[in-house]
């Protein structure tokens, strides 16, 4: 059956990876790898997601109905792009002997992006609240 076959293949691929991981490095390297493997999940599951849930919860409570969806979309887009950009925003890998590396105005770029996202969010929200008022129905949401 397809599923059983897939499980077998998957376990073999994963086992090869585990063997590569454990056999090609010294203990210190393995401990460092293990730390990063575990830290990533912990930070995501117990910090990032709860923060996102709290922010989203607050947003839907405090914002007018027409605003909550556009703001949520804006937060997802800008938030995930900001995470992607952390290494360049901090320029942690910059080297004084190499001017061709990390050679853009990243913070200015981020500000432009944030401004664009904000403009779109505000424009869409205003449009939605006007449409809601015109149709006579109260905007949905709490």
């Amino acid at each position: 059956m397809t599923r059983v076959l897939l499980v077998v293949v998957g376990v073999l691929l994963g086992a090869y990876g585990a063997w590569l991981l454990l056999s090609r490095q010294d203990t210190d390297g393995n401990i460092a790898t293990g730390t990063w493997l575990v830290a990533g999940v912990l930070l995501h599951d117990f910090l990032l997601v709860p923060v996102v849930l709290v922010v989203m919860g607050l947003g839907s409570r405090l914002l007018p109905g027409a605003w909550s969806a556009p703001v949520a979309v804006g937060v997802v887009v800008l938030g995930s792009l900001t995470l992607v950009a952390v290494p360049v925003l901090g320029r942690f890998g910059a080297r004084s002997d190499n001017p061709t590396l990390l050679d853009r105005p990243y913070v200015a770029g981020w500000l432009v992006l944030a401004a664009l996202v904000a403009v779109v969010v505000v424009a869409v929200s205003l449009l939605r609240s006007r449409r809601g008022a015109q149709s006579g129905a109260a905007p949905e949401g709490e």
Binding site: L6, V7, L13
Partner: peptide, 9 residues
């Protein structure tokens, strides 16, 4: 390899 194995499973 670990990720792709776990993904297939």
């Amino acid at each position: 390899w670990v990720a792709i194995g776990a993904l297939v499973v």
